[in-house]
Design a protein around this nucleic acid. Structure first.
Lengths: 223, 223
DNA sequence: GCCAAGCTGTCATCAAGCTGTCATGCGGGC
DNA sequence: GCCCGCATGACAGCTTGATGACAGCTTGGC
């Protein structure tokens, strides 16, 4: 799950990026509208966090342009004041949610989880599949009822695979979802590595990750 | 499905070629207009990805020439800036779609699929025929409801045959769709080989691949 | 601030399975 | 009957993925 944070205050952007990173999201930060356009053009995002007040224009323009271009990526808008007008305007422009600054990082995290969840067509956070019980909010994983510890990257990968359950996910797509731009130089071998680590932890759960040579990986129930 | 990528930046061309290759397209790369003309003269393409800014001229000239010569191959144009003028001009010249650089490889893939699909007159990606259910986007194949694993080449061949369902496809045409120039020295026997492999996997699906001696192969419902 | 523990990603090596060639056999057409 | 085109099994090369070991770095405890 890759997130774009459009925010020009370094402190806020950094804090949000760190917090969301811990929560299993891969984050890219864009301090200007121009950067935001560039990022959104290069890769797809599971959601966008958009500050309205930016040095080179209003986030509303960015939002409107994206929507006009047919992009339906969930957007969470950050507003400075709790003005009903501004709030309504943002939603009219196509925002999916808003948060008033200053905000609690945990709330940002929770709302983003709700947005990406909604996109995947799920009503609740928890995902149960076979003997596997995964809650991305609590970052908790259970296999056949027993709690299993997994690292951030492992959970992020699992999250992606479950969200695309039954579909073959190309390795580069998984890579995009796991790493932001600042980690672009990481070897693609790491995906194979984490798949191997995940497989060990999922052993006996009735869920497995199939390899499709030259195509990618697919998570699904056994059999 | 064979694609011509006219792009002079090696990184971009390579990334696109790799990504599309995984998606089941056979790609040729032409770094100059001269190369592009040569390739387009030698073989037909399901679509052309055309960068406008090339070392030996503008892609627009290439596009205009092709259209004037009566070629209706779908063309997706890559533009550097999001300029409305340039965009309109490209569409006027006969482009079918455009993408602003930098772009997301997934989007390129999706748009090409849309273009080639449109050419085949289908509205949806998924193809259902008898007991056969094939989704080229997810690279997933089901026979009578059961998932069947197939390799990249097998899927590419199936894709071609289904897209031309009911029509006899000459072997050299299938060959062109499966292999780019860099594989030009592959024996034509390989087509027979992959037809045989596909037949095994499609057994009992109600769909079969008929041999027409000296003419080619035809995929259709039994009976 | 220091230290320990564990997470991360690289490398090298090994295994798997895809790919295309070859050889052989079959069957239709002339 | 002969020839040509196609079918198919076996095989070797090679790309791609799997996996164990390791070093650097981050993180959290004290």
């Amino acid at each position: 799950m890759r997130i774009l944070i459009v925010e020009d205050t370094p402190d806020v952007a950094e804090a949000a990026s760190a917090s969301l990173g811990r929560a299993g999201f891969a984050c890219d930060v864009a301090p200007t509208l121009a950067d935001a356009h560039a990022c959104a053009g290069i890769t797809g995002y599971a959601a966008i966090v958009l500050d309205l007040n930016l040095p080179d224009g209003s986030g509303r323009d960015f939002l409107r342009e994206r929507r006009r271009a047919g992009d339906r990526t969930p957007v969470l808008v950050l507003t400075a004041q709790f003005s009903v007008d501004e709030r309504v305007a943002a939603l009219d422009d196509g925002a999916d949610d808003y948060l008033v600054k200053p905000f609690d990082l945990r709330e940002l995290e929770a709302r983003l989880r709700a947005l990406t969840r909604r996109e995947a067509g799920r009503a609740e956070n928890r995902m149960v599949l076979g003997g596997l019980d995964f809650d991305p909010g609590a970052q908790s994983l259970r296999v056949n009822g027993a709690a299993v510890t997994a690292t951030r990257r492992e959970l992020a990968l699992l999250n992606l695979l479950i969200a695309n359950r039954g579909r073959i996910m190309p390795k580069d797509r998984l890579f995009d979802g796991l790493f932001g731009f600042e980690n672009a130089d990481v070897g693609t071998n790491t995906i194979e590595l984490y798949v191997a680590r995940l497989r060990k932890k999922l052993a006996g759960s009735g869920v497995s990750i199939e390899t499709h040579r030259g195509l990618g990986y697919r998570l699904d129930l056994d059999g």
